[in-house]
Structures are given as C-alpha cells and as structure tokens.
Design a protein around this nucleic acid. Structure first.
Lengths: 167, 167
DNA sequence: GTTGAAAAGTGCTGCGA
DNA sequence: TCGCAGCACTTTTCAAC
C-alpha cells in the first residue's frame, strides 16, 4: 500500500531521503546531500524543484524556542460554536489573533480546536476573555494548559524509505 | 513589560526582524536580509550566530504537505494515565511511535495530550489499538479528529518589534 | 559592535551522454 | 533522464574603523 502511494506521487527513494535530511535541517547544503546519497548535486537540485512543483514541499522555516523569547505558556483550547455552520466566519476572526498558532475543525465535542502560545497566564486570560469570547458564535471554551512539551517533530518518512528499498 | 523581556534576553529590533524574516522562509539569503534592514551581511551573520548560541534559534526545517505524501489524517489524543507519575516512562515509549508528532504534559482531565499524523483512519486505529493501548499505564484515550487545519503558523514577533521601535 | 571586501564554498544552468 | 563542469551568488572570515 505504501509502494502504491509512492507510484501515484511519482517520487522515489532518492526524493524521500532528500526530504528526510532537509526536514531535520533545511540549511543542509545540496552538495552534502549529494555526497551522502551518492548522486550529483544537480540531481538533488532537480529533485527538489520537482518536489516543490508537486506541492509536497511548501517552504521552510526557522525553529525558535518560544520560551526563550518569553512565550512561556502553550495551551489547547476546545471551542463550542453555537452552530457548526459558523466555522468559516470564526476562522477569519481567529486569523487576526496572532497567539493562535493552529486551528482545526474537528469531530467530537468541540467544533474547533486551537493551539495558542502566550507570554504568561495573564496573557492567556486576556486572549481568552478579550479576544476569543468576543467572537460572535463562540459559545464556550475549554482550556488545556501544556506544562511540558515532550515531543515536537515532523512525520517520519522512514516507513516510505524502507518500503522503497524493498521494491 | 515586553521591553523588559527584550533587555533580559539581550536582543534588539534587528535580531527580531531577522528572526521574523527567517521564520517565514529559512532560505532567505543573508544578503537580502541585510539589504532590507540596511545593515551589512556580516552583521546578519553575527546576529544569527548569537541567536543560535542563546538557544533562541534551535534549527530549521522543511515544511512538507503531509496530505501530499498520503498522510491524510491528523488527530489529537487525550490520554488518561493510571498515575500521573508514570508520565516520564510513557513519554519514552511514545518517542518510539513515529506517528506521534507532539506530546504534552497537561492540566485538566487528561494526563497527556498528543498530536498524531496517520495515513488513513485504519492507520489511526492501528496506532491507537496496537501502539498506544499497549503502553503500560495508559488507561484510556479520547480521540479528536481534525477535519481541516485552517491555521498553521508560528508565533508572531510583531508585538516585540513594535515595542522595540517605540523605545 | 559594525563594515566592506576577499576567500571559500554552494547553487544553478546548459551541454553531453 | 541523469551527471558533469563552469559561472554567479552566498556564506564566512578578518582587518580596520
């Protein structure tokens, strides 16, 4: 089943290994990747261009430690909407709240589920009371505060790479 | 209060603006940043080195679209542990489950809260039944499936940059 | 701490296989 | 389609301010 996906996507093991390396460090020089995979740097370049055109690679970003710049509080907020249909309006308003770093439309008890990053608990309270509760259609929220983020990573491509090797 | 944080961290507006640019695209050349901020590329280089040494910048990664490589299902899992003290053992075992991309130790009804990315609902079920439930100490889980990720971004440094300007 | 330029290394492109 | 080689650009360093 994994092999099938790879065929549909038209990507092979070299593509996957390039992705795997760059997902850990987007600044890895192409020459170094080329050396590791025993291909030319031109090949790495062509593959990356293809992956970008296919929309698999969407960009790159710098990872910063939010705590080190004074953003100490991370929380998840379950949001109850008065009607599910109000979701798209609510999304637009949530866009304007910079503290909201993720927003999902979900199954289960909540209509929406947000991840927010704040400086401290006061800041969190301000976001909840002044920003979120002010949005029309939001009925009620439930907050889960993260005391420690123990794992933070991207999905692994190992399974795919293994599957590709067997083929 | 924001100004205070900046002083403690020993970072100024130039640092913040460099971060802000690179957070959106980690591959932006230093020369281009230098032009935009009207400083030399050497300065940008020195600042970035400092930010890395301070632990503010922790790395960079390539953003990929999980759906494009067949990872269609994103879910949040609230986990009840038999005892809260079992958290650190559970974390170690969760590390070995590649589908778990985030793990938090939380307040509220759940002991732990995880974000998982799977290929499809079957895959998610396999992770829940075969991997998570097999971990000793995990009593029960509650799953929230994300039907749509409407917002996905990093924290904004705009507030800090504004505060720095006023000063 | 910043600058500007020089040296080293990397990214990109076209040609050949 | 892939690999090789050359040019342009970027990174990095360093002496001078």
């Amino acid at each position: 089943m994994i092999e099938k996906t790879l065929q549909i996507l038209q990507i092979d093991n070299i593509d996957l290994q390039i992705l795997s390396i760059l997902m850990n460090d987007a600044t890895t020089p192409y020459t170094e990747i080329a050396k590791e995979l025993v291909v030319s740097s031109g090949t790495v370049h062509v593959r990356m261009k293809k992956l970008q055109e296919l929309g698999i690679v969407t960009g790159s970003n710098l990872l910063i430690n939010p705590q080190k710049i004074g953003y100490d509080v991370c929380a998840f907020i379950g949001i109850y909407l008065q009607k599910g249909s109000e979701y798209h309006d609510a999304v637009k308003k949530m866009q304007d709240i910079p503290e909201v770093v993720e927003l999902h439309y979900t199954t289960g008890v909540y209509s929406m589920f947000a991840k927010v990053v704040c400086r401290d608990t006061n800041h969190l309270r301000a976001v909840l009371n002044e920003k979120l509760q002010a949005i029309e259609g939001i009925q009620r929220t439930e907050t889960i505060i993260s005391l420690e983020e123990s794992i933070k990573r991207q999905i692994s491509l190992e399974d795919y790479i293994e599957a590709g090797k067997k083929k």
